[in-house]
Design a protein around this nucleic acid. Structure first.
Lengths: 137, 137
DNA sequence: GCGTCATTTGTTCAGGCTAAGCAAGGGGTC
DNA sequence: GACCCCTTGCTTAGCCTGAACAAATGACGC
């Protein structure tokens, strides 16, 4: 009903690396994969999704790769997570659609508070804000 | 890296129903399944897990069923969620073990804030606190 | 008291679905 | 021709669902 996947973390790690490399040209997926230790194929799949969402730009062929399409400071973690995992929001577990906020579903209310809290934390941090010091040893 | 599954929601719904029925004897899984609209088999599996964690008590045979083993007000949603989904905590995505809090992993820090926030919200609500008004129409 | 029966949980199997990761070939660009 | 993204398909694991069978318990008839 509500999740943060490993894929989201991988995408954030890759984006942070790109932002910190401060290269004005494209960065190959192989380089990002080596630097972060993430599976090359899976990372490529994630970046294709990010490209379709307008977060990164891709170029094929020699000297091709991926490149941030916007200022790192303007890309929030929430945006990245929602691109990969879908909306960060917890609906009612019992009824998929019904159960609007107006109904007195207390469980729905508690879950809304959880997802809302996570969303606001993720929205307050950006790729540029994480910075190159991000990588754990 | 961190999730709240449907199973957790189902378990909470079942427990709330049991607490609200205020019966001093055992409640059958069929009754809970009918009242909540949750798959009987899956609900039974969830309740078996809850029984092994000491949250409910079970009895087989005629007039058997499940029964809260403690005061509904003392069973927090966090306890139920962790019984079903495991610990509500987001570790580092890049390194499974290393990456302790002391290292300067900013992503780790952000994720810790997210999971900590969710855990504290879930810990502040109990099965007894949700109450019978919980069910959405 | 004993055997039978209905009731209800416990166990097992099988299938559909999604996330995560792997591998190979296609095709664009320098 | 070398480089590198794109597409497709496959495998593994875990979640969710459904069905059938086994085991335990209480009620009833004798």
């Amino acid at each position: 009903m509500f999740r943060l996947s490993k894929g989201s973390g991988y995408a954030i790690a890759g984006l942070v690396y790109m932002a910190s490399s401060s290269a004005s040209d494209y960065t190959g997926i192989d380089e990002i994969s080596r630097a972060t230790g993430i599976s090359r194929q899976y990372l490529a799949k994630l970046f294709r999704t990010l490209a379709s969402r307008g977060i990164v730009r891709s170029a094929r062929g020699r000297d091709g790769g991926f490149m941030l399409d916007r200022d790192p400071g303007s890309i929030t973690l929430l945006e990245v997570v929602e691109a990969i995992d879908g909306p960060v929001e917890a609906g009612c577990v019992i009824k998929d659609d019904g159960c609007a906020d107006r109904s007195g579903c207390l469980l729905h209310y508690v879950l809304k508070r959880c997802s809302g809290s996570v969303a606001s934390i993720l929205a307050s941090e950006s790729i540029g804000g994480i910075g190159p010091g991000f990588f754990c040893k």
